[in-house]
């Protein structure tokens, strides 16, 4: 039955891992803005243009 020590240790360690993950995520600022990411995830991925075309369009803006 001394396996219970093992089990207790494992359960506490698992709980602690999640706890530390929570603390780190708060520290990281994940809870500072809880709204914007919910919008951001709905943006569609766009097609990527070849670089040369991109260059030229940037220049167009500059001339504006």
């Amino acid at each position: 039955m001394s396996i219970i020590y093992m089990l207790l240790a494992v359960s506490v360690v698992v709980a602690l891992i999640f706890f530390v993950a929570f603390i780190l995520s708060v520290k990281d600022g994940q809870y500072d803005d809880v709204y914007t990411p919910s919008v951001r995830m709905l943006f569609e991925d766009e097609l990527v243009k070849p670089d040369s075309e991109k260059e030229s369009s940037v220049n167009k803006v500059k001339s504006n």
Partner: peptide, 18 residues
Amino acid sequence: INRSLIYKLGVAGFAFGN
């Protein structure tokens, strides 16, 4: 940014559950 309330709540919740 003062996040101490979230930390405190997190600690208390974690301990409460366990």
